[in-house]
Design a protein around this nucleic acid. Structure first.
Lengths: 154, 154
DNA sequence: GCACAGTAGATGACATGTCAACGATCACCG
DNA sequence: CGGTGATCGTTGACATGTCATCTACTGTGC
């Protein structure tokens, strides 16, 4: 790396802004969700995915949908299973596999937690943005994602 | 929360995009940095802050600058001290306090790691964006940060 | 049937982040 | 001085995330 292309002022401002925003927003949303419903954002994401399907889901499918590594998901499911949020079942088609379903506590928790979480996202994020900014934001995310996904290993 | 304001399609696209982008970008940058130089992004942030000051820094000042909780920073410094990246010193002005300085290994590591990291940010992020998008991105970050900082507790 | 490479998921070790609580010190005020 | 509350930083317990590794099973080719 002889002569790296340093960030110019505009890029610097956007990048630092992004880093600060994402850190503080994530912390804030996580704290609110935790206080409201005892769920973490990770719990929430898993429960939303299971709610959308509303039925048994292969662990691998869930991992693909969430874009999580399988080991991360396995640990998360173990913690959530301990709390009754999800249940694991044997997979009839493939004895190696496992199915995950929403537990009773999980269904209750997600239904109770979702409205306040969405409201928090609205008030912290979108109430401060106009339509054009929202559109550009989506474009930015797509553009960066295309580049990141383009080189999975580096 | 009787009638939450759900996200419309545009907001949904921007929000999911942001979440996916940030997760994958962070993972990718962290992996590269780790592979290149054995540093994590957290290590990197601390070392950058110490480099900019280039001298002893109070723990509290460092925490303020990074916007980290003091306990997080304390743990991080302990791990980094173990590896020789930073050193802790007693604070002459305030016997409660502590000073942190760049260790020899830390200075070497940051100087070696920074160029490749900046290049990675350029190629993964900014090479895919035009000037207007960068400008809007910075506006978005500022707008959201203003709202998040406005309600520290929720 | 059997060997064997590949896949599904779990696990252990470890790095990271959060929260609550602590000991030490400081600043202020009587 | 001496008490009292605030501040500084650390610590321990625990949740989370990553990596490498493991076991059990699959599917294929022979």
């Amino acid at each position: 790396m002889a002569d790296p292309r340093w960030l110019d002022d505009h890029q610097q401002r956007a990048w630092r802004g992004h880093l600060a925003m994402q850190a503080r927003l994530h912390a804030q949303l996580n704290r609110r969700l935790q206080a409201d419903s005892g769920l973490s954002l990770a719990d929430f994401d898993v429960l939303v995915a299971l709610s959308e399907r509303d039925g048994p889901l292969r662990v691998q499918e869930l991992a693909d949908h969430l874009q999580w590594e399988k080991s991360r998901l396995s640990h998360q499911l173990s913690r959530m299973e301990r709390r009754g949020l999800v249940e694991r079942q044997d997979c009839p088609d493939d004895a190696r596999g496992a199915l995950v379903v929403l537990g009773a506590a999980g269904r209750t928790a997600i239904e109770q937690a979702a409205p306040a979480h969405v409201e928090a996202v609205q008030s912290l994020v979108f109430d401060g943005l106009d339509a054009a900014q929202v559109e550009t934001w989506a474009e930015i995310a797509d553009a960066v994602l295309a580049r990141v996904d383009d080189r999975p290993a580096g």
